[in-house]
Design a binder for these strands. Structure first.
Lengths: 218, 218
DNA sequence: AATGAAACGAGAAAAAATTATCGATAAGAA
DNA sequence: TTCTTATCGATAATTTTTTCTCGTTTCATT
């Protein structure tokens, strides 16, 4: 019996895709029709082979001497990441970080559709941030039932992280995007992606202290 | 002639250090004196060998059957990253993301000393955010001369990124911590660390779309 | 047509990171 | 004191990722 094994894609490649995507959209909007790996690599100071390998995980195929059709490539990347379909999301923690995310329209282009925010602070509950209502966390179960959130975004202060995560679990989200530095206790199989700002700062610090030994990578 | 070659440290190890550090401080504040790699690994679902290798880059040495003295270990990590000395910084872009960073006291523990913020918006210039004054960007050269900023934090909207980066260059910062999705044109040798939130979202999306194929790593 | 150059895809080689193994050491129990 | 066990540090094996190489395709030029 022949089972098509579920390919596993290199994490670094996946992480580089958004960088390419941004550039490709820029080029497309300038009216460019095709682009080569050489060109992309040049833009980011990488090797063209790496770009080619990265792009290949999306299933796209290019033409020798020409490159890739930008429109197709954009579509292939978005399709690979599932960014061409809207994903319903909510956000817990309408502080400044939460506001920043609600205000950043880059994620909208990635299909992230944040319906509303939740908070405990009576001062923000009832208000609207960038067009999205802020509800009381106490209402999350009720509202979640109607809205069917797929992703929950955690932007609460660290001490409240686990509690907020539990609320998201009850709502039945498929994944949590965790901006807090807390590690969350989650049921097995739950998808959780931590945004580790301290990790980024550690790299910066290490470069300053110990020299720019690790080279940059997009 | 024997030159002590400038060792190069694994980037993933550096990125994991802050996670350990946070946990170690928690344990220390609970009154714990020692900790083993086994214990740390268990906490994060990793292998103890990896934790041991990660910690070893800081130069720390532990004792068999016991582990590491937490106080020493915390110090070793902070010393390795240069987090035990204050680093003067400024921030450009006092929007919600800028506010979030000014308000997050986790970075203070990492030695990051953000003296002030800069912005172009007359509505925020002159105000104070979390105890730090917001100046007009036009004044950055003058203020920078007095303050000697080492790190510049970029939290402006994407289109303003390069302009703001140039201002930071003139001020003479050693490193830029770039929260914008723009790639910056910088002189060779300039240290720049990009916070790639879209990369994080790409990983999340890929896990949802293509299955949780890449396993988690802290 | 024939030739040359640019770029692709696939597979090999090299480098980097993770995981496994093993001997040594220190603490606690017998 | 000796034995057992947990843990360390170092080295080796494995896996993953990056880089290199090479043959093929396509377009442009002669």
């Amino acid at each position: 019996m022949l089972v098509s094994q579920p390919r596993t894609f290199p994490l670094p490649s996946i992480q580089r895709l958004p960088v390419y995507l941004r550039f490709l959209k820029e080029q497309r909007d300038r009216g460019e029709a095709v682009v080569s790996c050489t060109r992309i690599a040049e833009e980011f100071g990488q090797l063209s082979v790496q770009v080619r390998k990265d792009l290949s995980i999306t299933g796209i195929i290019g033409r020798p001497k020409v490159g890739y059709k930008i429109v197709e490539l954009v579509e292939a990347i978005e399709d690979f990441l599932g960014w061409n379909v809207k994903t319903s999301a909510c956000l817990i923690g309408a502080g400044s970080l939460g506001k920043a995310i609600l205000g950043y329209d880059g994620f909208v282009e990635h299909g992230l559709d944040i319906h509303c925010a939740f908070d405990v602070d009576p001062k923000v509950v009832g208000t609207t941030i960038h067009g999205r209502p802020v509800h009381d966390v106490a209402e999350i179960a009720k509202i979640g039932e109607q809205k069917n959130f797929v992703i929950g975004i955690l932007t609460v202060p660290a001490p409240a992280a686990q509690r907020a995560a539990n609320a998201l679990l009850e709502v039945g989200v498929k994944a949590i995007w965790n901006y807090t530095p807390s590690r969350l206790e989650l049921p097995l199989g739950m998808i959780c992606e931590d945004v580790k700002l301290s990790a980024s700062f550690a790299v910066l610090s290490s470069r300053m202290k110990n020299g720019p030994l690790q080279e940059e990578s997009y």
